[in-house]
Amino acid sequence: MKSETIGNAVFETWTAEELAAAFDRNEVVIIDVRTPQEYMFEHIEGALLMPLAFFAASKLPGQSDKRIVFHCGSGVRSERVCRAAIEAGITPIAHLEGGFGAWKAAKLPYVGTNMATGAPQRVA
């Protein structure tokens, strides 16, 4: 994990493997900031959806029990959201380096769409 100090805040960048391990241990909440359409097509199972277009840092849960880690498609939108969260006083905060693309490249499981039926399916 890489970390950057911004004022008094800590901004972390996690690899897909680090995030998957922490998620399996129930130590983090993953928040997907992609569009609802992107999320419906494929997403990390168990990730919550808070699209960038509707992001409100004041609506985020506290981090007393679990850390918040944002992700998007490539890491660009989730970095923007993290910086907005830091401006709102939420720290530490983290995002997935490389986004969902990195998650898939690491061959980690997710929920996709069966193109023949349109139904959701687990992809390993």
Rank of each mutant, 00 (worst) to 15 (best):
E45K: 12
M1H: 14
A119S: 02
T35E: 09
L49V: 05
L19I: 13
G98W: 10
D24I: 04
A84C: 02
R67W: 08
E17D: 10
V28F: 06
T113K: 01
F100W: 02
N26K: 09
A85S: 14
S3G: 07
G73N: 13
Q37Y: 06
W14D: 04
E87A: 13
H43A: 06
L49G: 02
L52T: 09
E42K: 05
F55R: 08
K107G: 00
E18K: 10
E79N: 14
E38V: 03
A124C: 07
E45S: 07
S74R: 12
S3K: 15
T35F: 05
L60P: 07
A84M: 13
I31F: 10
I86L: 14
A88N: 10
E79M: 14
P92D: 10
F70D: 13
A9W: 06
A85G: 09
P51N: 03
T35C: 02
A9T: 03
V81C: 11
K2I: 14
I90S: 05
E27I: 03
E45Q: 12
G98E: 00
A20L: 04
I30Q: 03
D24A: 11
I6D: 14
S74K: 08
E4C: 11
S74E: 04
Q63H: 13
A102R: 08
E79A: 12
R83W: 00
T5L: 12
V76Q: 14
D24W: 01
L49C: 04
C72P: 02
I68S: 09
G46V: 00
E42W: 03
G101Q: 08
A85D: 04
N8R: 11
R122Y: 11
A22P: 01
N26R: 09
T117K: 10
G118Q: 11
T15C: 12
A9F: 01
V111C: 06
T117G: 00
L108T: 05
A56Q: 10
